[in-house]
Every structure is written in structure tokens, then in C-alpha cells.
Simulated scan of single mutants.
Amino acid sequence: MTMQLATRVSRHATRFSTQAAARSSSVAATRSAALAATQGPTRAAPEPVTNRRRWWQVAGGVALLALLAVQFGTGPFLDGLLAIRPWALALALVVTAGTTWCCALRWSLVAGWFDERIPVDVAFRAYYRSQLVNATVPGGVVGDVHRGWVFGWRPVLTERVIGQVVQIGLVGALVLPGAWRWAGLAALTPAVVAGGRVALMSVLSTSGHLLLFLVAAATVGVDLPLATLVPVGALVLLGSSIPLNLAGWGPREGIAALAFTTYGASAATGLTVAVTLGVMSTVATLPGLFVLPGGRRGGRQSCRRGGRRGGRRG
């Protein structure tokens, strides 16, 4: 059953990425033709660098994983797979549903800044779909690219930047030693309050991802105090956001090995926890299968209907 589910995810994600690329190429061709008709003959445009950049990202993730495998062997990878428990997967599904809703609400609120109307229910389904594609298609950002193409780039880019800034701020506070950690968190509080619901949703989302790391560490059986695991988990989350990855894999595992060594544990233990976290995170995106089919027209129409129902958003 697991192999069938994985095959279905891969098949849908590949078709999803191919359709998005074909539609993007069609739009680009149409715009180029219109420009040529109005401005006359022009020089051939340079070859797009998007695909090259994506393959460099994939190559970077593969290289990091290969380096870790050579350094530590396959043992930590296998241990991470064998450590997974049903209760941990169930909890990952619940927590990810909550973090996805937080991100969807943040996106919906940010869209209002640009006079765009993205109802929270539409945003919730689209965000699940985006996470599933990110977790199964090489590059780790294809889902966000499609989300921006369907619903508009400015809200997507803005809400992603806000999420990253808040996450970096939290990580910076959590890695501070001793009482300085609480001082750092206290210093962040006014900024979060000033940011309103958008900042609060970012904090809750990051906290949920950190909780998943703690669950993965508990599943593996890591014997470190919570005060140590929290900053380690914060560093791993920061590593997860590095785009040089293979569907999310690569930097997360490398940063985990380094962070666990820094805080007194073995690098192999960190790698094992990262593998467990990676599998849990991927499984937690599987509800996106139920909303995987989608296109630009359907997304825009849903937003227009939602906007008429809900009126203006603040």
C-alpha cells in the first residue's frame, strides 16, 4: 500500500509540474509574439535560466546526501526509517494541518494588502497542494512557483518572505544561551504584536514545525534535555529552508548532523532524526492529494467567488 501511495504521489506531482511548465511556456510564447508584433524584429531572447537553476539546486541536494552517506554510511538513514511509528505519523498529520491553516490565513491576509481576494478555504487547499508538490518534486519550490502563477506573485512572495523573516528571528532568539534566550524572545514580542495576525500566524507555523522536530527526536529516542533540543531544532528548521535541496532533502540532514555535534550529541544521531523528520513531513503533506488537480482558471474563479461572498478583507 505504501508503494502504491508513493507511486500515486509521484505520478500526480510529475503531471502537475509538467502541466504548469507547459502553461507557463504557452503564456511566455504568447507574450513574446505580441511584443514582436508591436515592436518589430528583435534579437533572440537568452535561454531561460529557471531550469538550469533548478537542476543546480537538485544537484546540490544530491551532493550533500551523497557526502553524508559516504561519511556516515547508510546506517543513520535506515535507522531513521525504522524509527518511525504510527502515532508519530498521526501526530504529524494533525500538526501539519494546523500549520497549513496558519500559513493559508497569513497568505489570505497578505493578499488583501494587494487588493487580491483569496478566501482562507481556497488558500488552505492550495497551500496543501503546494506543500505536497514541494515535498515530492526536485527543487523543493515548484509548489510555491505554481501557487504564485495561479494566484498572483506578489502575495505569494510577500507572505513567504514574511514567514522566513519571522523564522530567522525565532531561530536567532532560540539559539541564544541561557537567560539570553528568554531576553531574545521578549525582544521579538513587540515586533510580533505590531505585525498583527500575519506575524502571529508565522510564529504559530514555525512553532508547529519545531514541534514536529521534537516528535522526531522522541521517536528516535534522543536523550537530550528539552532546553538543548529546542535550539537544535531551530537550526534544523533554518536548514530546511535552504533551497539547495532534493525535494527538501539535503541541507536539513547536513545541518542536523552539525547541530547535534555542536550540542554534545553524535552527528549520526542528528542525521537519523533528520531522516525521521523528513519522512514524517512528507507523509503529513499527503492530504494534498485530494486537492492536487487545479489550474489557473479554477484558482482565479474561486478567488472571485470568494471575494464577492466575503467583501473586502483587511
Rank of each mutant, 00 (worst) to 15 (best):
N134H: 03
F151G: 07
G61M: 08
L67V: 11
A88W: 00
Q167P: 00
F72V: 09
W101A: 15
E47G: 02
Q164K: 02
L89S: 06
T96S: 14
P138Y: 04
F114A: 13
V166C: 06
F72N: 08
R54T: 12
V95S: 03
D115G: 06
W153E: 14
R129D: 11
R43E: 15
V94L: 15
G172E: 12
F72K: 03
P86V: 08
V171H: 01
V120K: 05
V95Y: 01
I118P: 00
G140S: 09
P138W: 04
P119R: 11
P76A: 15
L78I: 15
A66L: 14
S108M: 06
P41C: 05
G80W: 01
Q71S: 10
A92K: 01
T158I: 09
W101I: 13
G163W: 02
L105D: 06
Q131V: 06
W180N: 10
G152E: 09
L81I: 15
A59G: 13
C102H: 03
R43F: 04
R160Y: 04
A179V: 13
A123T: 05
T158Q: 08
P86F: 06
L91S: 12
L93A: 12
W149E: 15
A63D: 10
V175G: 06
L105R: 08
V156Y: 01
R147Q: 12
G169S: 13
L176P: 00
L68D: 04
L67R: 02
R106C: 10
L78E: 14
R129M: 11
D121M: 12
P177T: 07
P76T: 12
C102D: 04
A92W: 00
F124T: 10
A88M: 08
A63P: 01
N51K: 07
L93I: 10
A97D: 08
G98K: 03
T158S: 15
R160C: 08
G140C: 09
Q131G: 15
V58T: 13
V150I: 14
G80I: 04
G80A: 09
A63T: 13
L109V: 04
G169I: 07
W113P: 01
E116S: 08
F114E: 13
Q164V: 14
D144T: 05
A44L: 12
